[in-house]
């Protein structure tokens, strides 16, 4: 039998279709990475190869037992999910470039024929604003450098919701608690690749160790530039757009070929906690100024005969 070059050598140990147990460190076979506590893991989403199949959305809902929501049609292209929510932790956005602004497109763009598709998810920020805002400690960093909400600790205060610059976290109207992507924390603990990345048929969503993913992404950008896509860039890697305002870097980062706003991503996200000190001092300065003005007015009034 010919050797399959891209197959992991360990895959040959499991030739049967039905397995009676979970393969130890299965992610090594499916994603080429062994999941070990203490290392940083994340997603690299290459939007240029996303075909909008929504397999990631379905896999996420299936694994996490999340109910289908937003029933009905949105009228927004093929996107009936709408947005990330307490029950939708992966959202494939569809952006129609052809015919935008009421002008019929006359030329198709290479690679995606005028369609931009992107599978959005929680960014698992290095300095997570949601975690900084959480008063109960329900949001925490896992041993895999991901951000998770502990459901039994969350009191549903909702401070994390406006703190997230990406609009990811939502408090559920059903159970009154905050919900978001866990980067399949339970799967990681079991040595499994996250459901969305495993189900992605084009490898648009790649899971792995963050440093490896960042190297892979930089090479992909160079390759795209060489192939005539000069607009390709990374969003969320250190020093790149998306990693601004004290964010350092995002554990779930993206390769984009248009402005971040086109994909409904903020062009310069920032940590709200960085605005606390300036706000406090400007408030104190305003109070001091008003006190001084009042003192001057009263002293002036007293001096008058």
């Amino acid at each position: 039998m010919d050797t399959i070059v891209h197959m992991h050598p360990r895959a040959a140990e499991y030739p049967q279709s039905d397995l009676d147990r979970v393969i130890p460190d299965e992610s090594e076979l499916t994603a080429g990475v062994r999941i070990e506590p203490g290392k940083s893991y994340g997603f690299f989403t290459d939007t240029t190869v996303c075909i909008g199949c929504k397999a990631c959305e379905v896999a996420c809902k299936e694994w996490n037992t999340l109910p289908a929501d937003n029933l009905g049609l949105t009228g927004q292209s093929f996107d009936n999910t709408g947005a990330l929510s307490a029950n939708t932790w992966r959202h494939v956005s569809f952006v129609e470039k052809s015919g935008a602004e009421g002008v019929r497109g006359t030329a198709q763009q290479p690679f995606q024929s005028g369609w931009l598709m992107m599978s959005d998810v929680c960014k698992h920020c290095h300095h997570a604003p949601c975690m900084e805002a959480c008063p109960t400690g329900a949001l925490f960093k896992t041993e895999f450098d991901t951000v998770v909400v502990q459901q039994d600790i969350c009191n549903g205060c909702g401070y994390c919701v406006p703190a997230c610059p990406f609009g990811v976290v939502e408090v559920s109207t059903l159970d009154g608690k905050a919900h978001k992507c866990t980067l399949c924390y339970d799967r990681l603990k079991g040595g499994l690749e996250p459901a969305c990345a495993k189900s992605c048929p084009t490898d648009s969503i790649q899971f792995g160790e963050l440093s490896d993913l960042q190297e892979r992404a930089a090479l992909r950008v160079e390759e795209l530039h060489a192939r005539g896509v000069p607009s390709a860039y990374l969003y969320g890697t250190p020093g790149a757009p998306g990693a601004t305002g004290g964010m350092s870097h995002l554990n779930a980062f993206f390769l984009l070929i248009d402005r971040p706003e086109v994909y409904n991503l903020p062009s310069a996200p920032s940590r709200p906690s960085r605005r606390v000190a300036p706000s406090l001092f400007s408030g104190l300065a305003a109070v001091a100024g008003l006190t001084l003005a009042a003192a001057l007015l009263f002293s002036d009034a007293e001096r008058r005969p």
Binding site: W63, T65, L66, P67, Q151, D175, H179, D186
Partner: peptide, 17 residues
């Protein structure tokens, strides 16, 4: 069972969330 969500399979084998 996942967090505060669960799937219940009834006697006829139909699952409900």
């Amino acid at each position: 069972a996942q967090e505060s969500r669960f799937q219940l399979t009834d006697g006829e084998g139909v699952s409900h969330l």
